[in-house]
Design a protein around this nucleic acid. Sequence first.
DNA 1: CTAAACATGTAAACGGTTACATGATTCG
DNA 2: CGAATCATGTAACCGTTTACATGTTTAG
Lengths: 176, 176
Amino acid sequence: MSLRIALLGLLTVTGPSSGYDLTKLFERSIGYAWQAGHSQIYPELNKMAAEGWVTVEQEGPRGRKSYAVTDAGALELRRWLLDKEPSRLYRDERLLRAFFLPTLEPHEAAALLRTEVEAHNAQLAHLEALRDDRERKEAGFGDYALDLGIRKTQTVCDWAADTAATIEESAGEARP
Amino acid sequence: MSLRIALLGLLTVTGPSSGYDLTKLFERSIGYAWQAGHSQIYPELNKMAAEGWVTVEQEGPRGRKSYAVTDAGALELRRWLLDKEPSRLYRDERLLRAFFLPTLEPHEAAALLRTEVEAHNAQLAHLEALRDDRERKEAGFGDYALDLGIRKTQTVCDWAADTAATIEESAGEARP
DNA sequence: CTAAACATGTAAACGGTTACATGATTCG
DNA sequence: CGAATCATGTAACCGTTTACATGTTTAG
């Protein structure tokens, strides 16, 4: 379901696009929240076209097909956004790893967290550059999500630094 | 892969357990980072047993089978934790929704964010109670992860509140 | 002319969800 | 004895990943 929603959403905010465009845009934008490659996107667009959620607006060179959201599709997107079902899927391999940090030696766990801090700092710099770059132009699609992404990255970064410090501290006490 | 890791990790920190135990523990602990039901867990344990990552330690009443991690299994867990591949899977339906908030009317988006604030506050209270309850007893499995969970929940909560305020403000300006 | 980028598709294998199916033990 | 809980499994279906497969246009 979420893939359909992602595609409907992207088509709504960016206007008519091809599967190829959507695949690229996926990576650059909602790739932080959902992943899908062209081999999943092309069939899905065809299915949605068959069900009347999108239409093939025009066919261009190189077999390019441009899709647009129909009224039925727009309604489905609306429903998904507003229906407050409590079953929102969430999967996070990093968080999973956090659970099992204590199965490592303290110095290993701390080292791992230090690399995590670095990785998140880099990610943070990247996202902030993106935001600042946009601010000079007009506001774009995904501004709220970008803000959330920055805040979450900062939070995870702080957690990793604090946790590394805690682990190093108690390991130091253990061997005075 | 992640399911196997989750099971190996749980078996490592809690000691020998049955598929039934692991299913329940899954919900209560790493359910925040990964979801799996018994219909996925039982076959996976059998596969891992066949591959020598776990062994059936003992069989109890009602067909109960208790599994334990082997040295080979422990090594696989270690590898997964330490291998710093940059491809850590992340999926978040809530974040996906954040991307498409601008397709709604401002008052709808703001209302949706307000319910999000409430939901996260409730979740936050739940997680903090869990942590405080544990602090009085001895430190348990998943303490670092719980800390991360609390911080992330707080962050999302703040974001939702701030974003709702921003949207309401600019909607107010539009109709003075 | 040739390499890169554009553009779309299918198929096999794998992972995950929902529903079906069964039986043993314990508690009231 | 009946209901709840313990305990395990299978099968059908759907979603996702990886690999295969093909052809067009543009830029150098």
